[in-house]
Design a protein around this nucleic acid. Structure first.
Lengths: 216, 216, 216, 216
DNA sequence: GATGAATGAGTGTTCATTCAT
DNA sequence: GATGAATGAACACTCATTCAT
C-alpha cells in the first residue's frame, strides 16, 4: 500500500513494521533531496542510502514526486507543532520563552536533517505548487502567526514597544529559516561559526530592537 | 569563442545591444535557472526564451554547466561592487547610509532578475563546489565584511553600542538575502506584502537592536 | 508440483471443485490473456481474478510462459475432440450434421471463454513457436481434416458437387474461427448482431456454394 | 514536429524530406508490431530496423502509443479507398468485379506488410479503444457496406438470389480478413498453400452460394 | 554564424520472479 | 500450502551535446 502523499495533512501514514522501511526511505530521501535538489536526485542513490533496491521504493511511494511530497509533509508538521505545544499555557517573560523556543529549535531542527526541508521547499516551490502552498500554509504562515502572537503578547505585557508585530515576526523568522537553509548549503564551504552564539546574538538584537527604550 | 566560465572573475560583461546573443542567453538562463533549478532547466527552454536555437547556446557556452557558472558570475560582481562604491567616502550617519543602501538594493537587486542568484546558489551549492566557493568569497563574505565594517564604524562614531559586529552583520544580511530568495520562491504563493515597508521595519528593528540605549 | 506445460498434450485437466486452484487460475488467465494479450497481461491481475496472491501462481505454474502454454493446451483439446465425437458414426445428411456441429460449437465454444483461445494463438504465434505448432497440429489441422472429410463424405453421398474439399474446408473454417476472434476483439465496439442467424446464413451460403446445382 | 496520431483521419501527415524518416519508421514499426504485438515490441528493435537511434523515434512520434496509432491510421485508409475507387462507375458483372477486387486486394494488401494491420487491430483492440473504434468505422464497416452494396447490386441485376446481403457480406469479408491475419500468424508454421487458388475457390463457393439456382 | 536533425548516456518505472515466514 | 515483501532486469522516454549543411 502506498504511503499517501496526497492527503497532505493526516498524521500517521505508515504503520511500523519490521525494519520500518518507509521511515528509512523517507529519511534517506530527505538527505539526498536536500543535498542534490529534486531533479538531480537519483532514486538509485536514495535506495542505496536506505539499503533497499530501487524497486522497493515503489512499494511504498508511487513515484519520485510522491516520495518527495511525503518527505516534505512527513517532517513538516512536527516542526511547527512542537513550537506551538511549547508555548501553550506559558505565562512568563516572552523574551525568555523566545530564547527557549529558539534553543529548542536549534537542537531539534537545525542540528537534524529536518533543517533540510526549508531549502528543499525554497528550491522546488515553483516545480511543486500545491506542495508549496501546503508548506506555506502549514509552516510558514503558522510560524508567522505564532511569532506575531508572541510579540503581541509581549506588547500587551509591556515587554515590547508598540510596533508592527507582523513585520517584526517576519524579520525574526527570516533569519531563523535562513540559518537552516545556510546550514544545508553554503555553510559547507564557509568557515565554521558558533551557531548557538549567533542565534543568541540574533535574538538579543531582535529583542532589543522591539523592546521599550529603557528609560521611557 | 566560448565565454569563459572558468576564470570565474574575469571582467567581460555583456552590455545589451542589438543581437547581443550572449547577454540575451544569460538573462534567459538566469530566469529559467532561478525558476526551475539547475537540473530541471532544459536548454531548449533557455534557447526558446533567448530566441535562438539550442545549438546556438553552444556557440557561446561550452556546456550547460558553463552557462550556469556564467550566469552566476556575470550577475554577481556588480551586486556587491555597487554597494561598496556607494559607501566609499561616506562620512555621515551609518543608519542613514544603511537605509540608502537597502533602498538601493531593493530597487536594483530585489526587484530585478538578479535577485534570482541567491536562490540559485543556495539550491545548487553542493552540486557546484567551486562556484559555491566563488560566490561565498565574492558576495557573501564581502557583504559580511562590508556590513561588519559599517557597524564598526557606527560603534566608533558612537551610534551603535559595543556588540559583536560580525554576528550582527550576519543577522542583518540573513534577512536581506532571505528576502531575495523568498521573492523567487514561496512569495508567489503567499499574500502580497509591502516589501519596502517590511525592509524599513527590518532595518528599524535592527538599528534599534544595536543602538545605544537612549538614556545611557 | 508444477502443472506440466511442456508436455503440451498430456491429459490432466482440472475440473472445477472447491478450491481447485489450478483451474481457477487457468480460467482467470484465459480471460486476461485473451483480453490483453500475453505481454500486456500482468500476473498480478490474473492472481487477483483468481483470488490468490501472485506468489501462489508459482506454486502451480513455473512461469508466466508456462501458465500461458497451459491455458492454451488445457482448453484446446476438448474443443476439437467434442466435434470429432459428435461426428462419430453419423450416417445422415452432411448438411444437417454440419448444422448441428455449428450450433454445438456456437454454444460450447463461441459463447464461452474458450473462444478466447484462437485470438490468443493468432496474436502470439510468433512469440511462442512450439505452442503455435502444437495448436496448429492439434486444432487447426485436425479441424481442417475433419471438415474436409465431411465434405468428401458429402461428395461421395451426392450431396455436394465435386470440388476441392480442402479449400472448401479452409473457407468454411476461416469464418468460424474469425467469428470467435471477432467476439473477443472488435465486436465489443461494433453494433450487436445476431450471431446465430449469421452463422446459419454462413452455413447456408456455404452449403449452397458446394452443393450440386439443383437442376443439372 | 510530431506526426499527428490524434487527428486519426487526415491524410498527409509528414512532409517528405531527405531519407523520409517517418515513413521508414512507420514501415519498420508495422513489421515489428505485427510480428510481436504492441507490448512485446521494443522501440529499440523498431529503431534498429529503421536504421535510426531510439531517440530519433521521438523526433517524429511522441510516444510508443502514438507510433502505434500512426501505424494503424497511416496504412488503413488507402486500403479501403482503393477498393471503393475501383468499384466507382462499374457497370458490368458483379461476380467479375468481385474477382478483380479480390485479386487486387491479394496483390496490394495480402502480399504486402499492410496485411499486418488486421492482426494488430484484432490483438490490441481492447488495449486501444479509440483506435479500435476508428478502425471499425473506417475499415470494417466501410468494407461491409461496400460489399453489401455490391451484393445488392447483384441482386438487382438478377445475378444473385434474394438473400440477406448484410450477412453475406460479413461472411465474405470474414474469410478475407482472416486470410490476412493467418498470413501474419500461424501460416508461418503451416504448410505452404496456394493463396491465389484458395481465394478463387473461396470466391467461387461464395458466389455460387448467393447465386440464383441455375434452373429456377 | 546559425540550426535542424540525430543520438549516447542515462533515469524513472514496471513486473516476473524469489523467498522467508 | 500461501503470501507479503523484495528485487534484478528490462524498457520507455529524456536531454545535453554534436555536426553536416
Amino acid at each position: 500500500m502506498h504511503v499517501s502523499a496526497n492527503s497532505l495533512s493526516d498524521s500517521v501514514r505508515w504503520r511500523r513494521r519490521k525494519d520500518n522501511r518507509p521511515a528509512e526511505i523517507l529519511s534517506s530521501a530527505l538527505k539526498v533531496f536536500s543535498l542534490k535538489g529534486y531533479a538531480a536526485t537519483k532514486l538509485e542513490i536514495v535506495a542505496k542510502q536506505a539499503g533497499v533496491s530501487k524497486a522497493t521504493l515503489y512499494l511504498y511511494f508511487e513515484s519520485k514526486e510522491a516520495l518527495f511530497k511525503a518527505v516534505v509533509t512527513e517532517f513538516v508538521l512536527p516542526q511547527i507543532k512542537r513550537a506551538e505545544d511549547q508555548a501553550q499555557n506559558y505565562t512568563g517573560s516572552i523574551k525568555i520563552l523566545m530564547h527557549e523556543l529558539l534553543e529548542h529549535w536549534r537542537i531539534n531542527v537545525l542540528e537534524t536533517d529536518v533543517s533540510g526541508i526549508p531549502k528543499i521547499m525554497i528550491a522546488e516551490a515553483s516545480n511543486f505548487p500545491e506542495l508549496a502552498t501546503f508548506y506555506l500554509d502549514n509552516v510558514i504562515k503558522r510560524a508567522r502567526e505564532f511569532v506575531t502572537h508572541l510579540i503581541n503578547l509581549g506588547i500587551e505585557k509591556g515587554e515590547f514597544r508598540e510596533c508592527n508585530a507582523s513585520y517584526a515576526a517576519r524579520s525574526f523568522i527570516s533569519t531563523i529559516i535562513f540559518t537552516a537553509i545556510w546550514e544545508k548549503s553554503l555553510a559547507a564551504y564557509d568557515e565554521a561559526y558558533d551557531t548557538q552564539a549567533f542565534l543568541n546574538s540574533h535574538l538579543d538584537i531582535f529583542i532589543r530592537g522591539i523592546s521599550k527604550d529603557i528609560q521611557e
